[in-house]
């Protein structure tokens, strides 16, 4: 799935990597206290795909996202967003962190949190203006909780909190999104709302990478999959890559997970 379009003047010579891919990862290695967590990751994500990142616990799924976003130090490797280093392209990248990563007792409203996605646009020493609040409000509307805009965030349900995080990324109007387990512990209504939203983003030609745990829904939600276990076991279109053999290689001898994988595979409609 590598689109070879070397038509940009800013092309960097990076082997067979396509410089205009929304996300291009080259030989990325990440280690915590000298123990490798991600090893030699090479990936090109094609434009406009809805990509699931799947793998066992401790496979480095969140680490991969954080390494792409420069949130953790990397041992080696190169990450490019549309052919440029991430630091130059921050405005094009939206991030939805795990819900547990923040303190929900923090004295801010849902609208405040969404507005934080606009702080880069607003700039240093400037205050949040009415137009920013309007953008934030319409982002909340898109995830169906505009009526909760003024509520303190601890008084939202888990699903609503997740929607606030999604609205924050939407407000940013990025073209490449990273989402870390948006489906974790949300109610069915929120799960449906997120799926609709992901499809919307895809229809707008945006690229979204989603860390996902539920193998049963992978083939239903994503058109591209990265199977990860410290290394990239396989990456590509779901129907090609999401196979019993690849899942076995990804999850190894973890029996309970293998049972789950078997169940997931039985759900795939094969021609």
């Amino acid at each position: 799935m590598k689109t070879k379009s070397y038509n940009s003047a800013k092309t960097l010579p990076a082997d067979d990597h396509s410089p205009q891919a929304p996300l291009s990862i080259h030989d990325l290695t990440v280690a915590y206290h000298r123990k490798p967590v991600l090893w030699d990751i090479d990936l090109d994500i094609p434009e406009g795909k809805l990509v699931g990142i799947v793998g066992p616990n401790g496979a480095g799924k969140s680490t991969l996202i954080k390494a792409c976003l420069d949130l953790i130090p990397t041992a080696s490797g190169l990450v490019q967003v549309y052919g440029q280093p991430y630091k130059k392209q921050r405005a094009m990248v939206g991030y939805v962190p795990q819900r547990e990563s923040v303190d929900w007792d923090f004295p801010v409203s849902a609208l405040d949190v969404v507005t934080m996605g606009l702080y880069r646009d607003i700039g240093w020493f400037k205050t949040v203006r009415k137009k920013h609040k309007e953008i934030a409000r319409s982002a909340l509307d898109r995830v169906g909780i505009a009526h909760l805009a003024d509520r303190q965030i601890s008084q939202l349900s888990g699903g609503q909190q997740q929607r606030v995080f999604l609205a924050r990324a939407l407000a940013q109007d990025a073209t490449l999104y990273f989402m870390d387990e948006p489906f974790a512990a949300v109610d069915a209504a929120t799960e449906r709302a997120i799926v609709t939203l992901l499809k919307d983003l895809k229809n707008q030609g945006k690229t979204t990478l989603v860390v996902h745990h539920d193998l049963a829904t992978v083939s239903q939600y994503f058109d591209w999959v990265i199977l990860l276990n410290m290394r990239v076991v396989a990456a590509g279109p779901t129907e090609e890559v999401f196979t019993a053999e690849n899942l076995h290689r990804t999850y190894g001898g973890k029996l309970t997970l293998l049972a789950e994988a078997g169940h997931a595979l039985s759900q795939i409609k094969r021609p």
Binding site: L69, Y95, P97, D103, F106, M116, Y119, W124, T127, V128
Partner: peptide
């Protein structure tokens, strides 16, 4: 007063702050 936004976002969600260039 001058860094109200920045102090707020870094206290609430330091990772988001970093992705916002703060």
């Amino acid at each position: 007063v001058a860094f109200f936004k920045e102090l707020k976002i870094s206290a609430f969600d330091p990772e988001l702050a970093t992705t916002q260039g703060i």
